[in-house]
Design a protein around this nucleic acid. Structure first.
Lengths: 254, 254
DNA sequence: TAAGATTTGTTCGTATGTATC
DNA sequence: GGATACATACGAACAAATCTT
């Protein structure tokens, strides 16, 4: 790491940030679990020797990161709050707001992850999991008739990949796949006018998912990998043709 | 997701959060770039009809996400601030604090990404990039003599992978690899007493990195892939033997 | 160097809103 | 419905940082 110890007087940390950091430490030291109660506003004011406003700003900092939640009323106060996947995705999306991802970037990654993921799961799924995937793969049985319907089908298709990743039981992998799905679901599609809708590509994509479930069921890792790879290539081609553009907007706070 | 449309009146958004959201919208609508100036506290108070405390809480929310920075004094105020990779990693690490990643999880992902990454970069690196990688690969020329030295070598090794990913020019891939490196660099190693240090594994790992650079230089994608795969397997084995544990702590705000 | 201007940072007192009993 | 306990919000004053002259 190039800059581990910097000489410059690193920008003074404001008091709310200091308080927020101390509360984080407090939680980690005591190994407080989700839902555990934090000291009340008044107690923190006394504990840290700061004013109400400062404590409140510190709480908003922690709340924005998803680390705490607060409730009003008797029995209210601040509580340790598990960071949800939704929130983590939003926060991470803010980073890529400034990075301008291309379709190529996203699919380079998908092509690395998803075929291997599929192969690793051949023969390892429960019946209900296979059923759920099959339902998603076959939910739409005709090409989209309207932009709304098309969008709906796209989201369902992404949902298929998200669920598959979740079934892997690897939280890191699940998050990454799910994050890519989220970005892809949110992007803006500017359809070329002279390229209305490629039904053949659509049908191939649908069949790929159906074949994939079958390969997973019979435990054929090689077929699962190959099918997923074709599917990724087809999906990328469709996105490229439609001149899909990765969105530039902040995610709303969940 | 089980609960997509909930009936309950979803928890009222506090005023600071509302203000923060409106400022986000303001920035996106006007397509303000990094460094652009936001209205002053006083202007926001007038604009939104809220008190100073509320505006300040809103600013802390945005600041915690890395979206703005504020400075005091004349010419000071709030400015659009690009979310840094460091901050994004910290925020994401908070999510995995609650997820308990295992070494197996992380390496399943590394084994999917890094061999393909290496293959895709064969013959595509500039001389200075190859030189930098070579320097990282050869920096340490003897097995670690102390825990500190070992840690140092581990970090350098991870830095090798991080740089390689950055050279790919794919921000998504670069971030993921870099994030895994960060987690691995931060984890706690409980060395088994009867397994002091496997010098043979260490030497193999070092040689792998050297061979990899050579393969990249001569444009041999197959060799690059194979070498990286072996390297990943060796690294995983070393981590497993050392009973490395993924850390459980919040990251400090950068 | 010093003084003044500008903008955020922090405090305090008070009042309001909200959930529980 | 009323009392209670908590967070939420407001407004005015003062402190600190930093730029200009």
């Amino acid at each position: 790491m190039p800059e581990d110890s910097i000489a410059r007087p690193l920008p003074r940390r404001s008091r709310p940030v200091q308080v927020a950091d101390r509360i984080k430490d407090w939680v980690v030291e005591r190994d407080l679990k989700t839902g555990a109660r934090l000291p009340s506003e008044a107690e923190m004011i006394a504990q840290f020797g700061v004013s109400k406003g400062t404590v409140r700003e510190a709480m908003r900092i922690l709340e924005a990161q998803g680390l705490i939640i607060t409730r009003t009323g008797p029995g209210g106060g601040s509580f340790v709050g598990e960071v949800t996947a939704e929130r983590a995705k939003s926060l991470l999306a803010n980073y890529f707001y400034f990075q301008q991802l291309s379709i190529t970037d996203i699919y380079q990654m998908r092509k690395m992850l998803e075929p291997e993921l599929a192969a690793s799961m051949a023969g390892r799924l429960e019946r209900w999991q296979l059923d759920e995937l099959r339902e998603l793969a076959t939910r739409h049985d005709r090409p989209a008739q309207s932009p709304e319907e098309e969008r709906d089908q796209h989201v369902t298709s992404l949902r298929f990949h998200e669920r598959l990743a979740e079934f892997a039981g690897n939280p890191l992998l699940g998050f990454c796949v799910s994050f890519m799905a989220r970005i892809l679901a949110d992007l803006t599609v500017y359809r070329r006018l002279y390229e209305p809708h490629n039904e053949e590509l659509w049908a191939r994509g649908r069949q790929h998912q159906i074949d994939l479930v079958a390969a997973l069921e019979r435990g054929d890792a090689g077929a699962a990998r190959a099918t997923m790879r074709s599917h990724m290539e087809g999906a990328e081609e469709m996105m490229q043709r439609q001149e899909a553009q990765v969105m530039r907007r902040f995610m709303g706070s969940p």
